[in-house]
Computed example of a mutant assay.
Amino acid sequence: MLGKSLCPAVVAGIVSAVVWTGTAFAQKKYDPGASDTEIKIGQTMPYSGPASSYSTIGLVMKAYFDKINAEGGVNGRKITLLSQDDGFVSSKTVEATRKLVEQDDVLFIAGSLGTAPNAAVQKYLNIKKVPQLFVATGATRWGDPEHFPWTMGWQPSYQIEGAILGRYTAAKYPTAKIGVLYQNDDSGKDYIKGFKAGLGDAAKLIVAETSYELSDPTVDSQVITLKTAGADVFFLHANPRFVAQAIRRTFELTWKPAIILPSVGASVGAALAPAGLEKSIGAVTAAYMKDPTDKVWESDKGFQDWLAFMKRWYPRGSLIDGSNVYGYSMAQTIVQVLRQCGDVLTRENVMQQAASMKDLELPMLLPGINLSTSAKDFFPIKQMRLARFDGTSWIVMPK
């Protein structure tokens, strides 16, 4: 049993006791983790292990909260982010999450990374009625308010993104042979399901499909398999470490397929640069955030603000790693939800406000892409744009 679910009518709006006006708040009300002076948020992040390239997300989020705290906090309260290392190991995620909830008394969990780690604690957090907000993964299971009313995604779902890339591939390469490499977990399977749906009848053009485990030392053998199968298009779903390996190996084999690269592995700093930028020219991805390496944003205020933030609050963070845009934008989303909560910092109200975003614009999302949620819609970001790598940055393609 998941416990009593939130009433959709309650989630759909703001209960009468919590009228959000932007200036006036109802009588103060707190759950564990909140007080007159502090809001405690929990998180797990792979600061070690095979997915550690993503750990900068947790670091940039903490830096953004430090900035907010220095400016007076949210409604006069400082944000404390307790971010624990789980090494991308689900058993460690369970242990760390239980500690955060039962000993550290966090108000909610936010921004924890990884499909398998988050799946391992999803039922527990829903039974405890602790919000599991803005899960840092696009698996479809984070958008199921009927069964998991305390869990919400943030980025576009992997199936939606996979379908976008599949439709592009079918239109651009209608007769090409397709090779597929994916991470053997729920995230990879979601991407492949969406990609094949987007391909439609062209799915029959897939000549080889192989996967890798996070524990694998390399993906060299998988790349060789796809080349040997004669693939002209390489759909490459992997985390940045394995994307870099796969692109390097593809180059070494003098194999020159068209590369279709899901956004999770498309970071210029964490994936393409280690592989050698020239090796990815022409690759296509789907994007929803501004690429910090794209000079088109140099005079953009949102980019300038992000750059100033990075230089002051997170100077050791990479200015070419899209994960630092991701964490920054997610932290801004959390701050917006807390502002909407006013003085009613209960777990139920946190979920109500998270499920009440309407066309929220964030400065580092691509123009025209915003966040909206409702009682039945737990995927805040649903739009994406195709982008092509030019050897330096991802260039958004015309619609």
Rank of each mutant, 00 (worst) to 15 (best):
150 W>K: 04
150 W>C: 08
163 A>N: 15
209 E>N: 04
204 K>Y: 11
181 L>D: 13
193 K>C: 06
236 L>D: 05
152 M>G: 01
230 G>V: 01
228 T>A: 13
248 R>L: 02
128 K>N: 00
154 W>A: 02
166 G>W: 04
169 T>M: 08
179 G>V: 02
167 R>F: 10
224 I>Q: 13
146 E>C: 09
230 G>I: 04
146 E>Y: 13
257 P>A: 02
134 F>K: 01
255 W>R: 07
131 P>T: 06
129 K>E: 14
130 V>H: 04
212 Y>M: 02
131 P>K: 01
159 Q>N: 07
216 D>N: 14
198 G>W: 07
210 T>I: 06
223 V>C: 03
215 S>A: 13
162 G>A: 09
141 R>S: 11
175 T>R: 03
252 E>W: 05
139 A>N: 03
255 W>I: 09
186 D>I: 09
218 T>V: 05
206 I>P: 01
200 G>P: 14
234 F>C: 11
150 W>V: 07
190 D>R: 02
128 K>D: 08
216 D>T: 08
146 E>I: 11
150 W>F: 11
173 Y>D: 04
228 T>Q: 07
239 N>T: 13
148 F>R: 01
129 K>T: 13
127 I>E: 15
220 D>L: 06
159 Q>I: 12
200 G>M: 15
173 Y>I: 01
166 G>C: 10
198 G>L: 12
133 L>P: 08
207 V>M: 11
170 A>F: 14
239 N>Y: 12
250 T>N: 03
234 F>R: 07
163 A>P: 02
204 K>T: 15
224 I>G: 00
173 Y>G: 08
232 D>W: 01
196 K>C: 08
138 G>C: 01
254 T>N: 15
202 A>D: 11
242 F>L: 09
156 P>V: 10
132 Q>H: 12
220 D>E: 14
163 A>M: 04
211 S>L: 14
199 L>R: 10
218 T>I: 06
181 L>T: 08
253 L>D: 06
207 V>W: 01
182 Y>C: 00
149 P>K: 01
152 M>F: 14
247 I>C: 02
176 A>Y: 03
215 S>I: 05
144 D>C: 09
124 Y>I: 03
203 A>W: 05
162 G>K: 14
193 K>Y: 11
146 E>V: 15
226 L>Q: 07
250 T>Y: 06
240 P>F: 10
189 K>L: 11
172 K>N: 14
218 T>E: 10
131 P>D: 10
242 F>K: 13
228 T>K: 13
134 F>R: 00
130 V>E: 00
248 R>C: 01
137 T>P: 00
154 W>Q: 05
241 R>C: 05
175 T>W: 02
235 F>D: 12
235 F>H: 12
240 P>N: 00
